[in-house]
Amino acid sequence: MVESVVKNWQGEQVGETSFDLRVARPETASHIVHRALVRQMTNARQGTASTKTRSEVRGGGRKPWRQKGTGRARAGSIRSPLWRGGGVIFGPKPREFNLKMNRKERRLALRTAFISRAEDIVVVEEFSNELQRPKTKEMVAALARWGVEPEQKALLILSDIPENISLSTRNIEKLKLIAADQLNVFDILHADKIVVTTATLEKIQEVYGA
């Protein structure tokens, strides 16, 4: 059970809330979170790097010079890997880097990572009504009132993302906005501060609860 204070749009403490998620045992927690992080980063790789072998490089169909009598080394193609402009030996080819991880393990790793950041989680009231129109300056000021320093990387998690909030946050360099049902281990661990609303906490417990 994690207890946290709730702040309003002005940054004042207006109440308290608690949330509870089932996490991994202390002796295995770091291992399962690490596995989930490696899986996410590995699966994000495109795997599109490609080089041409000597059979794929254009040209080289004619023997450069006769086999004997020139005094030079034997050569059968100008596209040999030994030649400039030739093919590549054992170069990268398109491939998949996907790693598998059970759904229950992924959920457990996500809950464990989220609870491990409990000290850096800032809970605020719903504030979509406070922004009558998109205004980045007001959003930056609100983050400062909530205790997020300008140089800190912040993750803002909302149960649903209104257009005015999306437009107000997209130009803030060190702020990332995601929906509650799109949580991932990398974003949780990468952020210095995590800002959530009370509705978001309920959504997270509903979606990712045991």
Rank of each mutant, 00 (worst) to 15 (best):
K153V: 08
K193P: 05
R39D: 02
S18K: 11
I172A: 10
V23H: 05
R84M: 11
G47D: 14
S30C: 06
E119S: 15
K135N: 15
F127R: 07
I204F: 01
R107G: 05
T169C: 15
V123E: 01
G209S: 04
D187W: 00
K93F: 01
K52G: 06
E138H: 07
A113L: 07
G91C: 07
R74C: 05
P94N: 13
T70A: 01
A75K: 13
T53K: 14
A141T: 11
S159G: 08
R145P: 07
R39S: 05
V140L: 15
V88S: 00
R72D: 07
R95Y: 11
A24P: 04
V38P: 04
R45P: 09
I178P: 01
E206Y: 02
I115A: 05
D160Y: 15
G59F: 14
M101F: 05
N164Q: 13
W65F: 15
E126C: 07
S18G: 09
F19S: 00
G87Q: 08
R133D: 07
I194Y: 07
N164W: 01
G61D: 09
L167H: 06
R39K: 15
G15K: 03
A199V: 06
M139G: 04
E163H: 12
A191G: 09
A118L: 07
P94Y: 13
A180E: 06
F186H: 15
R54W: 04
L177P: 00
P92A: 00
K153C: 03
T136L: 00
W83Q: 06
R133F: 11
V14Q: 09
L156K: 06
I121F: 11
S4M: 13
L82A: 12
I32L: 15
Q132M: 09
K153F: 01
E202K: 13
E119H: 13
S166C: 11
L155Q: 03
R62T: 08
A180G: 10
R45S: 11
R133M: 09
I32V: 15
K100A: 14
N43V: 10
K193D: 05
L108V: 01
S159P: 04
D192Q: 14
H34C: 09
K135V: 09
E27V: 13
R95Q: 14
A36I: 03
L131H: 06
K93W: 02
L37H: 04
R22L: 08
A75V: 14
T51A: 12
R103K: 15
S18E: 14
G59L: 12
E125Y: 00
R22Y: 06
A199M: 04
V6G: 02
F90I: 01
K52R: 15
E206C: 03
P26E: 11
N164I: 10
V195L: 07
L37N: 02
S159V: 08
A36Y: 00
Q40A: 11
E16Q: 08
G91A: 10
E27F: 12
H31K: 13
W65A: 07
M41A: 08
R117W: 00
I32M: 08
T112H: 01
P150F: 12
T136Y: 06
F90W: 05
I178N: 00
